Amino acid sequence: MVSDRLGYLLKHVLARLTEAQTKALAPHGLNGRDLAVLSAVASGEPLSQLEVASRLRVDRTSIGDLIDGLEDRGFVERRRSPEDRRRNVVALTELGESTYATAERIRLEVEREFLAPLRDGKRFRSDLQALLGE
């Protein structure tokens, strides 16, 4: 039966989680991919556009469009690196910082509600991380 296949189950679980996150984040002008970029940029260390792409395992051609969209909405800006003037880094704006904080709370709540039917949501998450070798 198709619904017994791991790939089918993972694909459809991801689709439902993505749908829930998209709906919850939409009023804040974000989607899950946007939030992932903001999360990488908010990591505390100044990252170049290519470093953000690498951290998120996103194609380097796609990251430019993602960052452009966030920049157009005022969430991030490209700046010269204070350590190396030849290098540009991506930084959160004040709006980006406040929106990121709100969006992270929303993401955590959506995940908590999504995992609520499981006996041990924390265990499920750690099992998935083990499968990824993390």
Rank of each mutant, 00 (worst) to 15 (best):
R5V: 14
G32F: 11
K122A: 00
I63F: 09
K23N: 14
Y8M: 05
F114T: 06
E71A: 15
L38N: 03
L131K: 02
H12W: 13
N31G: 15
I67V: 10
L17K: 13
S3G: 10
A53I: 04
G7P: 15
E134P: 13
E77R: 13
H12S: 11
I67L: 12
T99I: 12
E51P: 05
P82T: 06
L132K: 03
M1L: 10
V90P: 03
H28E: 12
D34H: 10
R16C: 13
L17I: 12
E83N: 07
L115T: 02
D127K: 04
L25W: 10
F124W: 03
R57D: 13
L66Y: 14
V37L: 08
S3P: 13
P117R: 00
A40N: 04
V90G: 02
L56N: 00
T22F: 15
R73G: 14
E97V: 12
S126R: 07
S39E: 09
R119A: 00
L35D: 07
D34F: 12
V2H: 13
T93L: 04
Y8D: 05
G69K: 01
L132A: 10
R125G: 07
T18D: 15
E113R: 00
L10Y: 14
A15I: 06
D127V: 03
L47W: 11
L66D: 08
V2D: 08
P46C: 04
F114R: 01
R105E: 10
E83F: 15
I106L: 08
R107I: 07
L25G: 13
L17A: 14
S126H: 06
P27E: 10
S98R: 10
R79C: 02
R123L: 14
R79M: 09
L50G: 04
L6N: 01
D72E: 13
A116E: 01
M1G: 13
N31M: 11
R105T: 11
S126C: 02
Y100C: 10
V58C: 00
P46W: 11
R85C: 04
L70R: 10
R86S: 14
G7M: 13
A40L: 05
